[in-house]
């Protein structure tokens, strides 16, 4: 695993943890805006966008460097 990839994973993981913890802390306040079902849909849409961006970044980086951003398996 390259240093870039390691940093990438740590940053992504930390972001998810901070966002998750914040959402849990303010769950009653967030609940006043949307129902749990609506939140579920919006969070899934957010996850789809995050996955798409990550895949795109990995794809572009793989094209730029011969070996690939993570493992060159794109």
């Amino acid at each position: 695993m390259t240093t870039d990839a390691m940093g990438f994973v740590v940053a992504a993981g930390a972001t998810v943890v901070v966002l998750g913890a914040s959402a849990y802390r303010f769950r009653s306040w967030l609940g006043s805006f949307l129902s749990p079902d609506e939140w579920r849909i919006y969070l899934k849409i957010l996850a789809i966008v995050v996955c798409a961006v990550l895949l795109l970044v990995a794809d572009v980086a793989a094209d730029a460097s011969g070996e690939g951003f993570i493992y060159g398996n794109f």
Binding site: M1, I41, I48, A58, I70, F74
Partner: peptide, 21 residues
């Protein structure tokens, strides 16, 4: 959204997590 989410998670697992490790 459910179907697309499943597909996105699947791609992230196979194209990011698996090759990373």
């Amino acid at each position: 959204v459910d179907g697309t989410f499943r597909v996105a998670i699947g791609f992230a697992k196979t194209k990011l997590l698996g090759p990373l490790l």
